[in-house]
Design a protein around this nucleic acid. Structure first.
Length: 688
DNA sequence: TGGAGCAATG
């Protein structure tokens, strides 16, 4: 590809020589050649040719400005713009569009737009300016400015072009006003061009309205191009329908529609998520054959594919082969290391970077958060605030809120909430869901509820409903959980597997067996959500807690999937609650058969026998536990004081202030503790 | 002779 460009450019250079040596060169041909040079990446030649024009006209100046914009040299483009003796609205629009398209030039874009407006008599604005500014508001997600643009366009009748409709659909969709985007489309009376149609498909995908996306896609399908197919494939992949994304890719190929790097990036993402190494490798081979490796979306997608398929060595070798590495490729490998639990390698890779963007910070932060290494998350977040001149984005904050939830550190969670408000960070659905989850897991259901209510009815998605339903369930408000589920259905939000785990969990804690059974049947029959391990385990646990251990066993006999240690664990628990040693033998056999090495299960079994006074049986289990070297994770409690977590296990004396803690506890009899609880006192206040 | 719109990565 590159050699062809250079070869063409040499032809054009010879052409210029010919013009210079005999043919009359007009300013028109020189201007055209500046464009040709810059289109072929020969920016210095373009400038040299410009310098040779004795009296450059406005077209010459604009061609040179475009050349520097194409070279991504906005400073030089602006210098030419400022020094140009001839400027018109095209010069301004070119410069404005360049600022809007680049990152970090928001102020310059706004200043230039303000200048164009204030000098209305000499410069002014036209429909090119308006579509560019719609793009700007879409990028910044500032819907109030977008609406002002729209109003002005209606007033000046410049909202009717195909450029206007696609830009408006795009702006409303990216600003989260899906209905308004639909209104723009219906305002076109069904006559839309391909770009507007594609923008609408993208808007539906962004909203998760895949049926609607499919309808728009297939209407006037003769118009569809590679972008249309790419949009829909990416939409399916982003909404979790990986198999549909792959099926569409197959159909696209069968129909002979050309695919490009966008297509491959989405297909790679679908392969990674499905852990479909076979197809992923085919795509990798295709990429190598067609020389697409230099595309950072694709190379990071390939690294991600091998990481998600568990082949870290291969991912590393692909990564090493990338010449100039972008931060997305680094992030893919950091996420890969994190998913393997190898935070040492993840941190080492992060430390080698001289510049870090949001992506790599988030990758490392979420890696620590997923492994529940919460102190590291907090440390990293502090480092981010101190070392980066950036406002943290939602993804980083979500990881920090997740760490607060894991550790149940309410005070820190509140600090993060305050920080979000202080920095005026956009509270989107994902961030708000993380906040609701944090408050709920930190024990403050009232704040969780208040946060949940910040999002209007129509903007609540399944994730937000799920965290609130789970919150109610864990705090013992089963009726509220069920009510919210009804509300979710009324608002036409489709429940998923997580919703039903929360609902079944609510039922098992309150002994609502009938209601739980109804949910269990309904999830598959009415909502097409197939039960997974956790749903089965919840049901077994529910029967156990309701003293219906025989029913639990009957239920287990009908489970169509492989019964794993989680479900057997729930059954052992049921036996323990019901003091049923006759059925526990069966569970013991199965647990040993599937090679469960979780010590908790053995301790549970031993305890059941001990409770029945069957000491021989108990001794036998303990012995098995020793032979298998099964270790039970020790349960612990912790308290967060002065930026530090203090964890305690039963009989633990390892804490530096253990003596003081124990002597204080000794002094506190039941009555004193009760008084402390009544006045809301903290036992540890004077110790730390 | 020139300037504007749709799709991809944590």
């Amino acid at each position: 590809m590159r050699s062809r460009i250079v070869r063409d450019a040499v032809v054009y250079r010879d052409h210029v020589q010919a013009i210079k040596s005999g043919f009359a060169s007009t300013i028109f041909t020189c201007n055209q050649l500046i464009h040709i040079y810059s289109n072929h990446g020969l920016f210095q030649d373009a400038h040299k040719l410009f310098d040779e024009i004795s009296h450059p006209n406005v077209f010459s100046w604009n061609a040179l400005i475009r050349a520097y914009i194409k070279a991504h040299n906005l400073r030089q483009a602006r210098a030419v713009f400022d020094s140009a003796s001839n400027k018109d609205l095209v010069s301004y629009n070119s410069m404005l569009s360049a600022y809007v398209g680049a990152d970090g030039y928001e102020t310059e874009a706004l200043d230039l737009f303000a200048r164009m407006q204030s000098e209305r008599d000499t410069i002014g604005i036209d429909e090119f300016t308006l579509t560019t500014m719609l793009n700007f508001t879409a990028k910044l997600r500032v819907v109030c400015y977008g609406k002002q643009m729209h109003s002005y366009m209606v007033k000046t009748a410049s909202d009717l072009s195909k450029f206007a409709s696609s830009s408006l659909i795009n702006m409303y969709s990216k600003c989260g006003l899906f209905r308004e985007a639909c209104n723009v489309l219906s305002g076109c009376d069904g006559v839309v061009d391909l770009v507007s149609k594609n923008a609408m498909v993208a808007a539906c995908c962004r909203e998760g309205e895949m049926d609607m996306a499919l309808n728009v896609f297939w209407k006037n399908s003769e118009l569809n191009d590679t972008v249309s197919w790419n949009t829909l494939i990416a939409g399916y992949a982003q909404n979790g329908y990986m198999d549909k994304a792959l099926a569409l890719f197959v159909e696209m190929t069968e129909r002979g529609i050309r695919h490009d790097e966008h297509t491959l990036a989405s297909v790679l993402s679908a392969c990674s998520n499905l852990k479909c190494l076979k197809l992923g490798k085919c795509i990798h081979a295709w990429v190598l054959k067609n020389d697409f490796s230099s595309n950072q979306f694709i190379s990071s997608g390939i690294v991600d594919l091998y990481c998600k398929c568990g082949n870290i060595r291969y991912a590393e070798s692909v990564y090493e082969g990338i010449g100039i590495k972008s931060q997305f490729e680094v992030a893919s490998l950091i996420v890969g290391y994190s998913s393997q639990g190898d935070m040492t390698k993840a941190q080492r890779l992060f430390d080698t970077l001289s510049e870090r963007n949001y992506v790599v910070w988030t990758a490392l932060c979420s890696g620590y958060a997923k492994l529940q290494q919460c102190e590291e998350v907090f440390k990293l977040f502090r480092e981010f605030i101190i070392t980066e001149a950036l406002i943290p984005d939602a993804m980083i904050i979500i990881s920090v809120l997740g760490a607060c939830a894991t550790q149940a550190i309410l005070c820190l969670g509140k600090q993060i909430h305050t920080y979000i408000l202080k920095m005026r960070l956009n509270m989107d659905k994902k961030l708000l869901s993380a906040m609701v989850d944090m408050y709920s897991k930190c024990g403050n259901i009232m704040y969780a509820e208040k946060s949940y209510q910040l999002m209007t009815d129509k903007d609540r998605d399944a994730i937000l409903y799920n965290v609130m339903i789970a919150g109610y369930a864990h705090h013992g408000f089963e009726n509220k959980a069920i009510q919210l589920f009804q509300d979710m259905l009324k608002k036409r939000v489709k429940p998923d597997a997580v919703t039903f785990v929360a609902l079944l969990s609510a039922c098992r804690h309150r002994g609502l067996v009938e209601q739980g059974e109804k949910f269990f049947i309904s999830m598959k029959e009415d909502y097409n959500v197939l039960p997974e391990v956790y749903h089965y385990a919840c049901m077994v646990d529910m029967y156990g807690r309701a003293n219906q251990v025989e029913k639990a066993l009957e239920f287990m006999r009908k489970i169509p999937i492989q019964i794993d240690a989680t479900i057997w664990g729930a059954f052992v628990n049921a036996c323990q609650i019901n003091k049923n040693t006759s059925l526990v033998n069966k569970a013991e056999e199965e647990l040993l058969k599937i090679g469960a090495d979780n010590g908790s299960r053995f301790v549970q079994l031993a305890n059941i026998y001990a409770a029945e006074g069957k000491w021989d049986e108990m001794g036998r289990i303990r012995k098995k536990m020793r032979v298998k070297e099964a270790k039970k994770l020790v349960g612990c409690s912790w308290i967060y004081v002065d930026n530090g977590t203090h964890a305690f296990t039963s009989g633990d004396t390892s804490h530096a202030k253990a003596d003081a803690i124990y002597s204080t506890l000794m002094c506190l009899n039941g009555k004193e503790l009760k008084q402390l609880h009544e006045i809301g006192g903290d036992v540890f206040v004077d110790i730390f």
